[in-house]
Design a protein around this nucleic acid. Sequence first.
DNA 1: TTGATAATTAGACAGACACCTAAATATAAT
DNA 2: ATTATATTTAGGTGTCTGTCTAATTATCAA
Lengths: 97, 97
Amino acid sequence: MNNDVFKALADPTRREILRLLGHGEQNAGQLAERFDMTKPSVSHHFAVLKQAELVCSRREGQQIFYSLNTSVLEDVLTWLWDAFGHEKKTAPSRKPL
Amino acid sequence: MNNDVFKALADPTRREILRLLGHGEQNAGQLAERFDMTKPSVSHHFAVLKQAELVCSRREGQQIFYSLNTSVLEDVLTWLWDAFGHEKKTAPSRKPL
DNA sequence: TTGATAATTAGACAGACACCTAAATATAAT
DNA sequence: ATTATATTTAGGTGTCTGTCTAATTATCAA
């Protein structure tokens, strides 16, 4: 499992981008409008998500469309499942004081 | 979903701690020995995981035992599931050029 | 109380990160 | 070729993060 994936998920803007892409492919401009920051900043987040292979991109004329790469998200799901799936029941988790 | 949880998962040392705790409760010293860094550094990671409520702790004499808090891990699983569970099949994901 | 052990907290510092503005690239239209 | 539009890249800056050493807290045992 690649560290870049978890680093990418650590930022709330990027998680929101992923959530929006969950409703289908969208172009960079449309997506950027949703956020209260400049286009270059959002573009930077796209680059991080792409580097982590969490999204794919495709050019159509002047626009670039982004979409989810579900297979990497599945890998994260698998990692998490393993992380707490093997827990032994010897000491039940409890709230700290 | 709390941002601290994803921030906590962004570090490989912390993910390894979670993975080890997946095999059952362990005390801080045992756990710290596994890593090639000082105890205070590992202790810092415990604090981050605790802040994110990913782990619980319990004192027994001089030692402190850590264990997974599975409910928060479940929340992460749920977030991920939602993120790619609602994807429309209008444009299949593909590799970038 | 004194000393030993387990773990954390405090403070410092280098490197990473998120944001900005300005400049560059790529495509389309005139 | 020139201009307009969509997006990224470059460069700078303040803040956050991971690590270290040194100091502190908490507990146990003489």
